[in-house]
């Protein structure tokens, strides 16, 4: 029997977005990444080619994050004390891109300062040639206070500034426009809220080829099913031609999974949880692959071993299979 594979016909596509700028484009990055451009549900090669592979980023911090899992701190060792050294180590560990996430306070508990943030960002740019995302600590006012000077200091590098929510998007968009950067907006797991936020960002003046969206996810066991479904719904909406849902999606998988008990804690847990390190890495890997299958364009991880395993899956998914 001759079979005709059931192809969906889509009218829309995901917006293509370039992150990072090389010397030719007025920046200093050694490489750039391009995400988006999909015209099918994830990796359905028999409908159309997937133009860009999902990008795997590693998250680093401006100050040693003592609240992180000991597994992560042990892995990074000394490098975690210094953002420049950490950036270099993360690049060597195989990341496509780096997320510098700024802390709420310094190690002594004093509020983080614009000077410190700027210094950290510069150190990262100097020691690594990778494209960069920079996220504030997640409190609208402090985010603005820290990210504006960082944006100025990184002018021309096509950095992604985050995270825009409805409270702080204006300032971030304005500084992104002034300095040639991009933004990422985060809405709480809801197609319409993601859409609305994109409309606000666009109306504030940023072209859509400089906007990413973070639909929010939960970790495996802590709400991943909501993240999975909202991403599938956003991707379907984008392909059906709903323009304000067509931004590439970036998700903070490492942030979510490494705060779960399964990853954070090695002692006094049920015996059936097995080996701590392997469990934690699997937790991050399973979460990442699940969301990539749902349409994630950028996955931000914390452990290089997870990155290696996710990369192996992506390398294969991105190539068109022979379908006899």
């Amino acid at each position: 029997m001759a079979l005709e594979f059931p192809k969906d016909k889509w009218s829309g596509s995901v917006q293509e977005v370039v992150i990072g700028a090389t010397a030719a484009d007025g920046g200093t990055r050694a490489t750039t990444v391009t995400v988006g451009g999909e015209t099918t549900m994830p990796f359905i090669h028999f409908e159309a080619e997937t133009p860009n592979r999902p990008v795997l980023a590693l998250e680093i911090k401006d100050f040693r994050p003592d609240d992180w899992s000991a597994l992560l701190l042990d892995f990074w060792g000394e490098a975690a004390n210094d953002p420049g050294a950490w950036a270099k180590a993360a690049e060597e560990a195989g990341a496509d891109m780096l997320l510098l996430s700024l802390s709420l306070t310094d190690p002594d508990g004093n509020p983080n300062t614009p000077e410190a943030a700027e210094k950290a960002a510069k150190a990262v740019l100097e020691s690594s040639g990778l494209p960069l995302l920079v996220y504030g600590p997640g409190q609208a006012e402090l985010d603005n206070e820290l990210l504006v000077p960082v944006a100025n200091a990184c002018a021309g590098e096509r950095v992604v500034l985050g995270i825009c929510e409805d409270k702080n998007y204006r300032t971030l968009v304005a500084t992104a426009m002034a300095n040639g950067h991009l933004v990422v907006g985060r809405a709480p797991m809801d197609v319409n809220l993601s859409k609305q936020l994109n409309i606000l960002i666009k109306d504030a003046g940023l072209p859509m080829d400089r906007v990413l969206m973070d639909p929010t996810t939960g970790a495996l066991g802590y709400g991943i099913e909501y993240g999975f479904s909202v991403m599938e719904r956003l991707r379907l909406a984008a392909l059906r031609g709903d323009v304000m849902t067509q931004s590439p999606m970036a998700v903070s998988v490492g942030f979510e999974t490494w705060k779960t008990k399964e990853s954070k804690v090695g002692e006094d847990v049920p015996e059936t949880w097995g080996d701590w390190e392997e469990r934690a890495i699997s937790w991050e890997t399973i979460t990442a692959i699940t969301l990539i299958e749902a349409g994630a364009d950028i996955v931000i991880l914390r452990h290089p071993e997870s990155l290696k395993r996710v990369r192996a899956a992506v390398d294969n998914l991105i190539t068109a299979p022979e379908l006899a």
Partner: peptide
């Protein structure tokens, strides 16, 4: 068979 990975898969 490894409890640490099977746990995650069954939760998924």
């Amino acid at each position: 068979f490894a409890p640490e990975t099977l746990y995650g898969l069954l939760v998924l």
